[in-house]
Design a protein around this nucleic acid. Structure first.
Lengths: 292, 292
DNA sequence: GCGATCCTTCCATTCAACGGAAGGTCGGGT
DNA sequence: ACCCGACCTTCCGTTGAATGGAAGGATCGC
């Protein structure tokens, strides 16, 4: 590198540039990117050009950029996100059809829940969740569930840290957080009222496989005191078990085969399944139709 | 850099590593990655460690890696893929409900169609398409449609190049390709029989906005001579127009506002819409429920 | 026409990336 | 118990790719 050279690896600066695009960010100009990424303009200029060259950014009009196709294409190979999402959707659909409220799936990422999928309804309550966005663990019922099943060290870290409190009912301190997490651990679910918005109640259960590993939290956001909680928990629990089974069918199925494990295919027709087997693709599982 | 140093920018080597994971690839070990990316082992070792550090790869078990959450999270901000997909799904659902065959959405990427979304049915015909995978332009009806509306230079390039011919009915040469593309340009749709598999017929129409820009191709894969073609084309055309309108409502709507354009939100409840407006998020459009 | 804003190019400096080689670790075969 | 082969990890001297300040353009608004 050169000059005082600041940062860490080259990779981290490329990511700083991509990180300039947040969940609510629109197309950005070069200087907006430079500012958001805290990079010198000439450096940003070069990085943006490289990223655009590789298709990770794409030019829009003649002065703006947005994240590009290649990024999405690569992300498609993310079993922990894209894969889990695809596999969970049918189960989420079942819950959604009954509850007609927000149904969402979140995974643990750092000190946040990263939301991977959400089904909504026009008349559902307020819900700050966006697909691809994060909520601090203590602010969400999904977060409590994930925390309940994470290594103790994570709870210690989070409890020691700070979190915003959008409403007065949000969990206030480490003591309360630990109590709520203990509840979630004991009950196998979490209910959290008005933590982000006064009117909303979160209900979440873990997606937990037969080895005890927790892959995600499946949650609903419902109006407080309108939707009966008990039946919702039961619906969510059944769906979470279904998701866990689907996960094991793919991951386990693929890993169990000798030879190179291939990503199992989902959601395709029987005829297509036969086609891929003919092509010599080792592991192809048909789970269920994508959309039914 | 150092030593003979081979390649291009640092970015390109990181991408070579990520590129080792294909649409059908499972979790890979370090040496598999090194081999697939054609990188020296020690280099691959360092790159993989960096990528894992940043969450672009995640360790699985104790010797394998897979693409990580952060990659998916960043890809979430891709209006041309993730955004288009979300926005198109309701329209695709309408077509799917009628045809009960594969319905798919593809965008132009290099000399391929990159498929972004697909709805299937258990009894649908053979279909090689995978979400996140590519098909060469001349092999797919969606490809013909995209080629028909792309700059002439692209057609020249593709026609001059080579493509595989999985079946005897696949387009054979540049002459035939140009003729089929001309048809697609004239008709506003493309029908292609048995190009990838003997039993399957592709039907595709462009998603074309009011400025004439083509954003994607919307297609169906149906059994040859079973599904009436004309009504399918009409269904697809209506849906494509719907997608185009949704696109303009978001992109146009956001871009038209003064101040920083924000990514419009989709698929949320009315109450949530109000919530975001209150928070000062400039541009929030509610289009329709995510799942209905 | 003039200033402000944003983008592009240039280039001397220098340190982060490179990768061959050597040393571990692990497991399976005998 | 021992060896062997397959992987993975660490070390480190070399060097050219990345860096970013500065200067020069392009464009827009007033």
């Amino acid at each position: 590198m050169a000059r005082g050279s600041a940062g860490r690896s080259a990779l981290s600066r490329h990511l700083r540039v991509l990180g300039a695009f947040g969940p609510l960010t629109g197309d950005l100009t070069l200087s907006e990117i430079a500012a958001a990424a805290a990079l010198p303009l000439s450096t940003a200029h070069r990085l943006v050009a490289e990223l655009a060259e590789e298709g990770l950014l794409e030019p829009v009009g003649d002065r703006r950029y947005r994240p590009g196709l290649r990024l999405w294409e690569l992300a498609t190979r993310t079993p922990g996100a894209a894969g889990l999402r695809e596999l969970a959707r049918p189960w989420m659909g079942v819950v959604h059809a009954r509850l007609r409220q927000h149904i969402q799936l979140g995974v643990l990422s750092g000190h946040d829940v990263l939301f991977i999928e959400r089904l909504s309804a026009p008349d559902a309550v307020v819900n700050a969740t966006l697909i691809g966005a994060r909520i601090a663990l203590p602010l969400s019922s999904s977060g409590l569930v994930l925390l309940a099943h994470a290594p103790e060290a994570l709870l210690d870290e989070v409890a020691a840290g700070h979190w915003s409190r959008p409403t007065a009912r949000a969990i206030a301190d480490a003591r309360e957080l630990r109590a709520r997490v203990a509840d979630a651990r004991r009950d196998g679910y979490a209910v959290l009222d008005g933590a982000i918005h006064e009117a909303s109640r979160g209900i979440a259960v873990p997606v937990i496989d037969s080895t005890g590993r927790v892959h995600a939290a499946l949650g609903a956001v419902v109006p407080i005191d309108e939707t009966p909680v008990r039946p919702a928990i039961e619906l969510l629990t059944v769906a979470a078990a279904g998701i866990a089974r689907s996960l094991e069918a793919t991951a386990g199925g693929a890993a169990a085969r000798p030879g190179r494990p291939l990503r199992p295919l989902l959601a395709t027709s029987r005829a297509t399944l036969a086609y891929f087997e003919e092509l010599g693709v080792d592991t192809v599982l048909e789970l269920r139709a994508h959309d039914d």
